[in-house]
Computed example of a mutant assay.
Amino acid sequence: MAETTRGEARRTSFPIGDDLSEMRRRTREFLAAAALGELRETNFVLAISEAANNVLDHAGTEGLVVLRCDAERVVAEIIDEAGLLTDTGAGRVQPPIGSRRGYGLWLMREMCDSVEILTERGASTVRLTMLRS
């Protein structure tokens, strides 16, 4: 989908495909105007990429990334239609040392200003937010 603008707010969306490098490239292009700073932008792109990878890995669907930016924040919603992620508290506690899985949501919570897990109409959404301060 093409980027849309309303006043100061901007929005774009695109499907999650097997080529996560293309998704990261498109995300970085969108974030360039947000001026988050190199570290915060890198953390945000990594968190979005991890959420998208979780959709491919666990939901078995391609999913959708929706990016929004306004004067105060940048929001990424990673949506999967399978709706398998229903634990709104997932990732609040660091996985045990030596665990091979379970780090994704925990890392997202460490790297972003806010992480929400929403379930609506049978779909799951991970909403990641970075403040533009």
Rank of each mutant, 00 (worst) to 15 (best):
F30N: 05
D18H: 09
A32S: 05
A51Q: 04
R26L: 13
M23V: 12
A34N: 08
S49V: 05
A34Y: 10
G17L: 09
R40Q: 11
E22T: 14
A47T: 15
V45A: 15
S13I: 04
L39G: 03
G17T: 13
R10K: 09
A33N: 08
S21E: 13
E50Y: 09
A51D: 00
S21N: 13
A47Q: 04
R25Q: 11
R10Q: 08
E22Q: 10
L39Y: 04
A33V: 03
E41H: 05
D19L: 04
I48G: 11
T42V: 11
G17H: 08
V45Q: 11
R26N: 07
S49D: 07
S13A: 08
T27G: 03
A32P: 00
T27R: 09
I48W: 00
T12P: 02
I16C: 09
A33K: 12
G17C: 04
R25D: 15
A35F: 02
T12A: 12
G17N: 07
R40E: 01
R26A: 01
I48A: 09
R11N: 10
A34P: 00
D19Q: 03
G37A: 10
R40W: 01
R28K: 08
I16T: 14
T27D: 01
A51H: 11
G17E: 13
E38D: 14
T12W: 11
R40K: 15
A34R: 13
A52L: 06
A33Q: 12
E41S: 12
R25L: 13
M23L: 14
F14L: 10
I16F: 02
E22V: 15
E50G: 11
R24W: 02
R11S: 13
T27C: 10
R40L: 06
S21F: 07
E22W: 03
E41D: 13
D19C: 04
F30E: 03
R25Y: 03
S13N: 12
F14Q: 05
L39R: 04
A51S: 11
L31Y: 07
G37H: 01
R24P: 00
E38H: 03
I16W: 00
R28C: 05
S49F: 05
R25V: 06
L46K: 10
R25C: 02
G17W: 10
A35T: 02
S21R: 06
R25P: 00
A51C: 12
F44L: 15
M23S: 14
L36N: 02
V45Y: 07
M23Q: 12
N43L: 09
M23N: 10
S13K: 00
A33S: 14
N43I: 09
